[in-house]
Amino acid sequence: MKRAVKVTVNGKAYAHEVEPRLLLVHYIRDMLGLTGTHVGCDTSNCGACTILINGRAVKSCTLLAVQAEGASIQTVEGLATDGKLHPIQEGFWEEHGLQCGFCTPGMMLTAVDLLQRNPDPTEEQIRMGIEGNLCRCTGYQHIVNSIQHAARKMRGAAGRATPR
């Protein structure tokens, strides 16, 4: 029996009838057409499917769409506003944070959660923060540089915020 699901994704409200076993990542990709969220390992290891639910990074291959009922979701498509890149996107651009790009959406959304908690992370804290995201190009150094770039930029814009 199908269930009604209402969610807000990147500020836009959606309502659908879904099978309870539909995974959130498939809901986002197949029903909403937002294919920036990738399916990598499909076993909650690689982090390519990472999205933000109510501001927190989660792996959307390991959630049912029905569990997201009422939630506010952000995907990579919602990072830029008014045609202006989010600081984390700028960081990946400036610091060559992507090679093949497959892990990039998940990396960026994980980084957004990380920087919300800790606006001034050490390199080690960044590496621990993205331990749930795998880069198959192994380009981790540039990804770390990209997140540091974004952290500097976001601290500059918002002043010195304190970690939560």
Binding site: S44, G47, T50, R56, A57, V58, K59, T62, L63, T110, D113, L114, G129, E131, G132, N133
Partner: peptide, 9 residues
């Protein structure tokens, strides 16, 4: 436990 995303859920 796991990683940040796993700990969030």
């Amino acid at each position: 436990i796991g990683d940040m995303q796993v700990r969030n859920r």
